[in-house]
Design a protein around this nucleic acid. Structure first.
Lengths: 212, 212
DNA sequence: CATTGACTCGAATAGCCGTTCTACTCTTGA
DNA sequence: TCAAGAGTAGAACGGCTATTCGAGTCAATG
């Protein structure tokens, strides 16, 4: 999608990216000018408008440091824990987030903390974070968050591999000691819901946890 | 380390964190005032100085949007791939980074892409990213990047669990099919070097990759 | 009551910021 | 040669920003 860039503007974009990474905020036009040895702020503005026209950045007019990268890292909320052998409820972990880059859309993604060994053969361990992309459908073999809707409760969720078979849906744990759940098609349609599929996992060794 | 915060200042800090997450830059004092229904910018400045004094933020005087979080997410560079059965060289993957929050210091951390199945029993798979904290020492049982220094080459690195035994160092793969490497103490001291230990792993399912 | 500390407002100030305008130099190509 | 386009400098302008100051409120404490 992005048009190729000249050498100079490529270096300028690189400076902006590094500045944001280093300082936690975008640079001002004058700071860019100083770093790129450009004397005129109007000149910087000119190059920024080029970068914007070509889709590398988005600018907010008149705002100081009003430069955004079109692809940039974001945090997504951790919405609770999920099991395991027995389905348990997703409960909210207020304020906790994990950082994932990779173009994960924070609007349509969230994370859960895995409890138990039910996905151990897929190398998803107790304590891992799983990053879920919200979607109501999935393909065979996807690892999904499936929710059993029971009236009067918020629903019980489980993390399993999804397989659509002739007469039924099979929710397959990745642990030889655990049995898959078989659900007839009509019951599936009526009482179950896909909440999303796993697109990434994050595991921490030793460390205390995560930042806010 | 951080002193506890009053309700109001806690909400103010939360707003700042969310603003940065949402907008990619810190808010101005006026924007904070508007969001917190504070009429006076001097008033905002007062609360910010409280947050700074208590160690939650750092401010750069006179700079617009000059607020930094003391713990904030960063990207760390991906420096290459690492094996596996056979030690291979770390080669640079220019420009690639992954995002990790959790207070990982980007100055002292980097990431590698795992190739092969040598750590599979620790549930570290082919294609996973391992996040390495640079350090020259480690404790028994740590998963480390160990480099065998051979003259005239940049060194060959391997990913193993480290065990210091009576007369030797044991570098233990997590795969029953692979033999550990045993290194006499004097050879270890002379020819080997710890480059860092694994503090996190990140795995992506399906998706194409990551953003710059 | 008097004092202290935390919090709030309104106003003022000096400087920073994004943007625009004019003018100039190259290079490319018709 | 002429025109067009990209790149550069300098200056100016109006708005935005962080900071400071003086004054005031309120609750807790002595």
């Amino acid at each position: 999608m992005p048009e190729p860039l000249g050498e100079f503007q490529r270096r300028m974009l690189e400076f902006i990216v590094n500045y944001i990474r280093r300082e936690g905020m975008p640079p001002t036009n004058r700071e860019i000018g100083k770093a790129m040895k450009i004397a005129s702020t109007g000149h910087v503005d000119y190059h920024l408008s080029m970068l914007e026209k070509r889709g590398y950045i988005i600018r907010e007019a008149k705002k100081s440091r009003g430069i955004k990268l079109t692809r940039h890292p974001w945090g997504i909320p951790v919405e609770g824990t999920i099991a395991a052998g027995e389905p348990i409820e997703i409960f909210s972990e207020p304020d906790q987030t994990i950082e994932v880059g990779h173009g994960v859309d924070p609007e349509s993604s969230f994370a859960l903390i895995v409890r138990g060994q039910s996905m151990i053969e897929d190398h998803i361990c107790d304590g891992d974070y799983v990053v879920i992309k919200r979607q109501r459908t999935c393909e065979n073999g996807d690892i999904v968050v499936a929710v059993h809707l029971v009236e009067g409760t918020p629903g019980k969720a489980t993390l399993k591999r999804f397989f659509l078979e002739k007469e039924q849906v099979r929710l397959q744990p990745a642990n030889a000691e655990l049995e898959p759940i078989y659900i007839p098609r009509d019951e599936w349609d009526r009482e179950w819901e896909i909440q999303g599929k796993v697109i990434a996992i994050v595991r921490h060794y030793g460390g205390p946890g995560r930042a806010a």
